Simulated scan of single mutants.
Amino acid sequence: MSIELIIILLTIGYIIFTIDKKKDDFPVPAILVVLGVGLAFIPYFDSARLTENTIYHVFLPALLFVSAYQFPIKDFRKSASIIVSLATVGIVLNVLILGYLISIISPIGLLEASIAAAILTPTDPVSVVSIIKKATGNEEIASIVEGESMLNDGTSIVLFTTLLSMATREKGFSFFSFSGEFLLVSIGGVLIGLAAGFLVSKIVHYSHDRNYQIMLSIILAYGSFLIAEAVGVSGVLATVASGMMISYEYGRAEKEDHFRKSLDGFWEIAEHSLLAILFLVIGIEMTEYLKLDYWLYAAIIFVFMIFVRFITIYGITKVVHSLSWRYNFLLSWAGLKGSMSVFLVLTLFAKSASGIQSEWIVGVSFTVILLSLTIQSLTIAPISRSLLK
Results as ranks from 00 to 15, higher is better:
Gly338Arg: 01
Gly335Gln: 04
Phe310Ile: 08
Leu331Thr: 02
Phe349Glu: 03
Tyr289Asp: 01
Leu274Ile: 02
Leu274Pro: 06
Ala298Glu: 09
Leu292Trp: 06
Ala334Leu: 05
Glu288Met: 11
Met305Ala: 12
Trp295Thr: 14
Phe302Ala: 00
Leu346His: 01
Ser262Pro: 06
Asn328Tyr: 05
Leu344Asp: 00
Phe310Ala: 11
Met286Cys: 12
Ile313Trp: 03
Lys291Asp: 03
Phe343Leu: 04
Leu323Ser: 03
Phe279Pro: 02
Leu290Tyr: 10
Leu275Asn: 07
Gly335Thr: 06
Asp264Ile: 07
Lys318Ser: 12
His321Tyr: 13
Lys318Phe: 12
Phe266Ala: 13
Leu323Val: 10
Trp325Val: 06
His258Ser: 14
Ser332Ala: 15
Ser332Thr: 15
Ile277Met: 14
Ile284Val: 08
Ser273Lys: 04
Val345Lys: 10
Asp257Pro: 05
Val342Asp: 00
Leu275Phe: 05
Lys261Leu: 11
His272Glu: 15
Leu296Asn: 13
Phe329Pro: 05
Phe302Ser: 00
His321Trp: 09
Ala334Trp: 04
Phe310Leu: 10
Met286Tyr: 04
Tyr294Leu: 06
Gly265Phe: 08
Ala299Asn: 08
Ile316Val: 03
Phe259Pro: 01
Tyr314Gly: 11
Leu263Ile: 15
Thr347Asn: 07
Thr312Trp: 09
Ser273His: 07
His258Lys: 09
Val320Phe: 07
Gly338Trp: 00
Gly338Asn: 04
Phe329Arg: 12
Gly338Thr: 01
Met340Val: 09
Leu344Thr: 02
Ser324Gln: 07
Arg260Gly: 09
Leu292Gln: 01
Asp264Cys: 03
Phe343Thr: 02
Leu292Thr: 09
Phe329Ile: 13
Phe307Asp: 03
Met340Asn: 04
Ala299Ser: 14
Ile306Tyr: 04
Gly265Met: 06
Gly335Ser: 05
Leu348Gln: 03
Phe302Thr: 00
Asp293Val: 15
Leu290Thr: 12
His321Val: 09
Lys291Ile: 14
Val345Phe: 02
Leu330Ile: 08
Ile306Pro: 07
Glu285Asn: 08
Thr312Leu: 12
Ala276Gln: 02
